[in-house]
Simulated assay, not measured.
Amino acid sequence: MRYQVQYQMWSPETGRPKETLSIADRDNLKPEEVAGLPTVGDHIYVMDFKGGPSIEGVVKSRLFTLGKEFTSINIVVEHSEDHGHLIKE
């Protein structure tokens, strides 16, 4: 079984996720890595040091697409202003 994950930011303007690529997108996840993926309601912040978009906000939804030999997981993140209040730097 092959697992892959894609992160997308929610767009309030269009009412659907944006077509974006993230440094956090991965192919060939191991089954034990899938359990560690963020779930609905989790606050996440994925920094991209290579010039791509960062992913920051609250997980809005997770969509699992099951195929014969693969599972694709799409994680949609909605922007949140609360992120800065969750940790003291």
Rank of each mutant, 00 (worst) to 15 (best):
F70P: 05
I55H: 03
K68P: 00
N74W: 01
S72I: 07
F64G: 00
S61G: 11
N74S: 11
F64D: 14
R62C: 13
L63T: 15
V58I: 15
G52K: 01
I55V: 15
K50D: 13
E69K: 12
M47W: 06
I75E: 04
V46Y: 11
S54K: 09
M47G: 12
I75F: 05
G57K: 05
V58T: 13
Y45T: 06
F70Q: 09
L66C: 03
V58G: 01
I75W: 06
V59I: 09
S54E: 14
V59D: 01
Y45G: 04
M47H: 13
E56K: 14
M47Q: 13
M47R: 15
D48P: 10
I73G: 01
P53D: 06
T65C: 01
G52T: 02
T71H: 04
K60C: 00
S72C: 05
F70Y: 15
I75R: 02
S54M: 10
T71E: 13
G57Y: 07
T65G: 08
Y45M: 07
E69P: 00
V46S: 02
K68R: 07
Y45D: 06
K68I: 12
D48Y: 05
S61M: 10
M47V: 09
P53Y: 02
L63E: 15
N74H: 07
G57E: 07
G52V: 01
N74K: 12
G67S: 10
G67A: 09
E56V: 14
I55R: 03
G57R: 05
L66Q: 11
T65M: 08
F49V: 08
K60Q: 06
